[in-house]
Design a protein around this nucleic acid. Structure first.
Lengths: 336, 336
DNA sequence: GAAAGTCACCAAAACGTTTCGGATACATCA
DNA sequence: TGATGTATCCGAAACGTTTTGGTGACTTTC
């Protein structure tokens, strides 16, 4: 039998109203009795029943984290942990709890976004790793549940988003390759079902244009962000366009796939071909040659998403937050 | 204004009692009215308020996942995601929600385990990644909150645990090296603050003993499970005992650290020195040479932990569940 | 034909909070 | 003096469920 506000009231000889007001820092209660109540609460080891509180306030001090099926055996999200750690850190200050939803497409028809959030009475949600074609996306465009998306540009009265400046990042990576003397630069992009793919393509094109290098459709291929995707794309691209001397990738996993493919083809990296990735996952610095890539501050992305979400919950206006990236120069790209 | 059980009652011309009983599959309500009520609930898009329900039933259908500060920038838990994915899968059937606690030692004094769980009214918790010296451990030994630990042997009325058979696994790994002809086998173990370290040491000793190889204290060192730990231990061990031809490790990260150290010392793996790891993290198959190691089925460990937890919540007796491991033979160990 | 059993339903309490609308006692003001 | 203000407190309603202990009406049993 946990101790309730009633026990305290009885003990202190006051009403439950007064106990509630005292403990929650309201006025209308003398300092003297407030201290007495606090002391008793302390002694009885009282802690408020969050469920009961939630029932009346309609707030749970809990936010949801919605990730897609990216957490599944054999295809683990490469930097989910970093984002998660950032989110937890961002939530800590305001003492929000985090409840984790992993949605698999099979059950999404059954449980739409709003139902998911309402059933569990979360005060808001962070959404990460959804594809553009995901049914949740349309729903989120019109929701009034405080929501912050990661890497998905939606903005309205209650929803904001945070991301890197993907256009600029891709621009810098490509420009770097150009500066190294490369002219025939391939781009192995992510699938069309991610907003970042379009942005990164734009940055790639921009860099070519600025340096008067003609854009060629056949130098750009799309695939999912995985290692296998990179492996296959690279083989095909190099086979059809042997003049290519450098390849920029929309993910490190794909870059690593290319690296393997190159090695299997007897090409040396970076001597025969330069490779640049995107993300700077942990693995990138551990392989040989280690990967030149764009570092995304995923911890910070998570942190900012969390901070922004609580600000939206508190009534502030949603916005687009961009967190800085930077080009990390290692061994996989070389001057020609 | 969400639709409540009252609205349905009014609409159907019955009492709220009847609606509740109808919807929850109790007897005492005719099939006819049950169908009517269900239909109305459907039409009104009713979904029960879990908070209100939780208040009266004192159950939330939520479990906590307690992990230590392992999720922090720069030191991400190498297989947490696999465990997490397994847990989520194990919870899905019974529709338990998961709320994530990351405890940092700083706040543990302030928030003891039971308070953590009670405040949020979880029905039970899974605990992972805690050190033996963690204050929570003592508390959990006597708790009556349904709890399942991973890799920490505590068993009582409400708490069980799941782990690999670490003794056997270490035994197999060491035996494998012996079978390859190695006699001077080092063991870079994890720190003393983990139960698995003792078990793995026991397995290592057992294998030596069975093969009539004398155990030497100086062949065994302890450190944390990290790459840096492995790196430093390896240098020291080889420097002081150059006759060693093989090293078994309590984690893949440490094995990779040794691998780097060996390379920096101009030793070739596996030609000059054989290396065996433990865990089979993703990275292990991607490095060169890829790592011979003990595969832990972390997804399954998570899954079993979740299943066992719900069974404890439902009143079954806690036990120790051991999930199978297996020796994965790759390139980092070689016959001499 | 009375007692007992069954079926379908309901009113009200309970869970532990917060909050609204007073109420009391005393001091202050014109 | 009467009115007004202020500080401190309280009773009761409300949140949306589940559950307890009924109550009639109708059947069955002896």
């Amino acid at each position: 039998m946990a101790v309730t506000i009633k026990d305290i009231a009885k003990y202190a000889g006051v009403s439950v109203t007064t106990v509630s007001r005292a403990l929650n820092g309201y006025p209308d209660v003398s300092e003297e009795t407030r201290e007495k109540i606090k002391k008793i609460a302390e002694e009885l080891n009282y802690s408020p029943n969050s469920i009961a509180r939630g029932l009346v306030t309609n707030k749970t001090h809990t936010v949801g984290l919605v990730v897609s099926e990216l957490i599944k055996p054999g295809a683990y999200h490469p930097f989910f942990l970093e984002i998660l750690a950032g989110i937890k850190a961002g939530l800590r200050k305001d003492k929000y709890d985090l409840i984790l939803y992993t949605v698999d497409p099979a059950s999404q028809d059954v449980t739409p976004y709003e139902k998911l959030c309402n059933d569990r009475k979360v005060d808001g949600a962070i959404v990460e790793g959804l594809k553009l074609s995901d049914p949740y996306i349309e729903e989120i465009k019109n929701t009034d549940i405080p929501t912050v998306l990661i890497d998905i540009p939606i903005l309205n009265d209650k929803v904001g988003y945070v991301s890197s400046d993907n256009v600029q990042a891709a621009f810098e990576a490509t420009s770097y390759l150009i500066k190294l003397g490369h002219k025939n630069i391939g781009f192995i992009n992510g699938h069309n079902d991610a907003a970042v793919s379009f942005e990164r393509l734009e940055g790639y094109k921009k860099a070519l244009y600025k340096n008067n290098i003609p854009y060629k459709d056949e130098y750009v291929v799309f695939d999912d962000f995985t290692q296998d995707g990179g492996y296959n794309c690279f083989r095909k691209m190099i086979f059809e366009n042997p003049e290519i001397t450098a390849v920029f990738h929309a993910s490190d996993l794909m870059a690593i796939g290319s690296l393997k493919a190159a090695q299997d083809l007897g090409m040396r990296v970076p001597d025969d071909i330069s490779i640049v990735g995107f993300d700077d996952i942990e693995l990138s610095s551990l392989i040989t040659p280690d990967l030149t890539t764009i570092r995304q501050e995923n911890y910070k992305i998570g942190y900012m998403a969390a901070r922004h979400l609580v600000s939206i919950i508190k009534g502030e206006k949603p916005k687009h937050i961009v967190v800085p990236h930077r080009l990390v120069i290692r061994q996989s790209a070389k001057k020609i």
